[in-house]
Design a protein around this nucleic acid. Structure first.
Lengths: 189, 189
DNA sequence: CTGTTTGCCTATAAGGCATAGGTAGATGCA
DNA sequence: TGCATCTACCTATGCCTTATAGGCAAACAG
């Protein structure tokens, strides 16, 4: 009986890696146990159950994502901040598809309220400071930006942009340009 | 042994209903068999396997969605068409969350090419006729619209807009207004 | 170096997917 | 009307994943 040194943290990280390799849907206690050369039942000493494991991976991914976005927008404003935010977001989704999927795992309200998702939302509001939008326009804009970013990452990951030769990168730049124009035109009203 | 009269069509429809009630992830052969008062093994005479069932539900949902959108945009142009398209899309996602989820089920390329998803894409291009965009701008716009619509429906379904008091309906109208402005500003260049 | 903690184990059970092979109800044809 | 065939649904079985209960030995504290 060799002790492998399992901890909730190691399981979470390994689960995140597994998600990136095979998809978040393939993250099972059995698969994770195989990865560690251990029996599935052994994992229950470190995580409560399958849902608990997935929640931990989701929180981990949200934290990572918020960190990257925070790093990207630091010291930037206006369109510069918008682009940096958007790129950090999309880059994360592309580099870590499984973790990005995990970040969208449905959390119960209190867990969500204590997650890095809150920080993420605050940063979205922060980049809008450059556009001087009053409420309720600011909330509308937060929702629109969230929709575009998530929608684009989601469709791109699903291969929805593979049919046409035009590079996804170009459409992304075009879209950000569009959003900047639209937001600036709203800052007047 | 009472014959219930199973057919692939009835299974697909029942699966779609089950998806709307409990989520697409809960659509299993076992659950569907229970719904018909039949043993799981009996379903294999009508659908190849679980993946086949899900694919059928996905194709069914794509068909329904394309029908509604086609109905909405018929005889409309410009912002009117854009709004009608967007509302038909969002309304479907809200009325049939499980089917909407199913419509995003990953299909293999040939199945996707023969699905109503193609019709859907064509209609997106059609509503852009009113904005007179040349390629590659048109493709960029198709991708942006797809991202916003899917992103908004997805975030709304996940309860992402429940934290703030401002109604999701208002943000939706604001977003469509924004998109119209942005697209019109591009039609010049 | 001994006692306690705890990390990983085996055993077990329920539920989902899937296949093989059997039986009875429906259908076709005389 | 009666028989043969077809086929819709069945039981039996096996594997996989989740989950719980209880056991043993490695690691650690004193």
């Amino acid at each position: 009986m060799v002790r492998v040194g399992l901890t909730p943290e190691r399981l979470t990280l390994a689960g995140a890696e597994l998600a990136d390799e095979a998809g978040f849907g393939e993250v099972t206690l059995s698969a994770l146990a195989r990865r560690f050369g251990v029996k599935p039942a052994s994992l229950y000493a470190h995580v409560k159950n399958s849902h608990d494991l997935k929640t931990r991976i989701a929180l981990f991914a949200l934290e990572e994502l918020a960190d990257r976005v925070a790093d990207a927008v630091a010291g930037r404003a206006g369109k510069d901040a918008l682009t940096a935010f958007a790129n950090a977001y999309r880059d994360y989704a592309r580099a870590h598809p499984g973790r990005y999927e995990a970040a969208r795992y449905r959390l119960d309200p209190q867990t969500a309220a204590a997650s890095a998702g809150v920080r993420h939302a605050q940063m979205t509001r922060a980049i809008l400071r450059g556009y001087e939008l009053a409420e309720p326009d600011q909330t509308h804009a937060v929702r629109m930006l969230g929709s575009v970013f998530h929608g684009y990452a989601s469709l791109e990951a699903a291969g929805g942009f593979d049919h046409t030769d035009i590079a996804a990168q170009q459409s992304w730049a075009w879209t950000l340009d569009c959003l900047d124009t639209a937001l600036r035109s709203r800052s007047a009203s």
